[in-house]
Design a protein around this nucleic acid. Structure first.
Lengths: 193, 193
DNA sequence: ACAATTTCATACTAATCGGTATGAAATTTA
DNA sequence: TAAATTTCATACCGATTAGTATGAAATTGT
């Protein structure tokens, strides 16, 4: 009963994600997508639905990858503070070495679409909440191991780190002096004690 | 020698700013602009040039207004810490009371355009640097008055506040629980001591 | 009053937008 | 091998995009 799909759906989704990530939703045209996904328009529509459905699929794909990416970067061999520090420092490197400057796809979407579409408001909010849980677990680990004071508010601190993460990611788009970012990181980390 | 311009250029610019602020550059059409500015297309083009020129004019207008707005909100009668605190708390109120959720026009532009257009990279960077100078002056005032420790790094702290300001402004677009934002504010303010 | 000049409104342009109808090519099951 | 079914490529759709040509209405300086 019929041909099998010739293209790799996962690779196509990934290519679409790269375009939306770099250009945003409104600035991305179907022509951009066909070129980068190396697919004809009808193939895209039959596989993913319309432009918005495709966008949503790429964003959901991104959040999954992002979470596992972050989990893998928070190296458990170091102290908690050092792990978080090198995670933040890695952010700078990624963004300043490569001259792509795409930032975080979820944050980009929060700015572009969350205020105009509840679906993306919820999706982006939940992602940030999940990130804060990851930080919270780290901090709690640090408290239990005696690395941090017992009376540290792990949840509030984790939320503060998420806010810093967002601020840093966004600010880097304007390419300020690195010391600007360094100050923010070092001050934020100083809350861990 | 000819008619005088019938419309108020300043009000037209302000109306354009509101549209770009709310919808962003790419999602704003010339039709959106004509409707909100209550001007015909040729009037817009003769007065402001093309869409991008108009956008740039509205953004420059915004940054000026934003700076004076912030200066007026940092009430000099309170202690420095309280002034900064109520400035941040005012942010939440504005964004959560009114259900507009436009955020900061400059930050929106940093996300949407700075990575694709050096002109906006520079413009948005300089605005953030200017904001950090305002905070720095406040903190230095607090040091001189004895409100803060003498060995506080005013510049680094000011930059940290700008990063928090950006993070909070962006995160609010996803409408998280207010306690999320409150934690970030209170932790950031705790650096002032 | 008249001539010069500018504004503003209509209507238009070419190009691009997101989305789809159509049909041939390909591959499957029977 | 034949019938059924799906994929993929071409070519198209109406709508909308940013931007403009044209000309009438209005207001200026002389």
């Amino acid at each position: 009963m019929g041909r099998k799909r010739e293209f790799d759906e996962e690779k196509a989704l990934d290519a679409a994600m790269q375009v939306f990530w770099k250009k945003g939703y409104h600035a991305t045209s179907l022509t951009d997508l066909t070129m980068n996904m190396k697919l004809q328009r009808p193939s895209i529509y039959s596989a993913f639905g319309d432009k918005e459905k495709l966008f949503e699929a790429t964003l959901r794909n991104y959040t999954k990858l992002h979470i596992s990416n972050i989990r893998s970067k928070l190296q458990p061999d170091k102290s908690v503070k050092d792990a978080i520090r090198s995670f933040f420092e890695g952010l700078i490197e990624e963004e300043y070495q490569g001259n792509q400057n795409k930032g975080c796809f979820c944050i980009n979407t929060m700015v572009e679409l969350a205020p105009h579409d509840e679906k993306f408001e919820i999706l982006t909010r939940e992602h940030q909440m999940y990130l804060s849980v990851i930080f919270q677990e780290m901090i709690q680990k640090g408290i239990q191991s005696g690395e941090f004071h017992r009376d540290l508010d792990a949840k509030a601190l984790a939320q503060t780190f998420v806010v810093s993460l967002i601020g840093i990611t966004v600010l880097m788009k304007s390419r300020p002096e690195q010391s600007f970012i360094d100050s923010a990181i070092s001050n934020t980390l100083s809350l861990l004690k």
